[in-house]
Amino acid sequence: MATFFGEVLSEFSRAVDDDEEDQDENEEDEQIRRELEEKREVHLHWSSEVTELLQSGNKLQCSDFILAVGHNAARFLSVYALASSNWEAVGHASLWNERSRAVPGPTSEESACVFHRHKETPSVLICQVICYVAEDQLFQWTEKVFDCLQHRELNVTVLSDSSVADYKTANYPCTSSAPFLRSLHTDAFRGQPVSPSLEQPNIITGLPAAVLNHCQVHGIATVVYQCYSDVIGPDSVSMETYKPALTKLRKSIQLDSSLSTDVLRKFVKTTDIQSNLYI
């Protein structure tokens, strides 16, 4: 959909394209559909230690689960938390969908969605998601991941990237105000979020929404911090916006707050945008 001023928004056509599913689907169709569904399944790969634990019927002891969705959020965690050597990778999730690369290198797939655990306080788990999770995979991803975690006393924090074009307000958002944070939390969440609440009629979609839905119906304390940024690529200014969200978490994670913006900048690959006038 394009707005009056030509911004292209990723929204659904409200028309329903194909409402009458084929009643007399033959066996071959069904098989193709089944195979496609299998291919799109989300798989979790845990380290041998965690696998053993899960196989014996136990769940991962987890008091804080921090999920970063998007490049800015993921790199922010890389710099402020994971840069210290106190973390170990305990697993990753793998999935395939229409946006996956045709020839995925094993490394790129494995690094797209990694779980890290704190060495000293193993109840703190971090997950960075930088791959695209398709709409039909969001629910499954959430169910599978939360199925491995113990729910009692669990606190979930989600940091998520978003474009300022997705933010609706009666006053046109002026460029100087971006990037900014908005929060959304489940009923079970106690305490004060560090940023203003997301105003109606704005909504959250994607993985953060799937996590919120799951946690709301299962009574898990969860807060999502959505960063609305006006820069397309990863940038250090947007990453800095997440800082207040982590000050709340500092009890559980020792954050290296002495880092300066310069360090952040190093993490930002200079994206080669010469001009966006001509493609």
Partner: peptide
């Protein structure tokens, strides 16, 4: 398709923050 938002039927400030 998952989505989440604050109270769509909010009438006052107290009930606005409700998922």
């Amino acid at each position: 398709i998952p989505m989440a938002g604050n109270n769509p039927y909010t009438t006052c400030r107290d009930d606005a923050e409700e998922l």
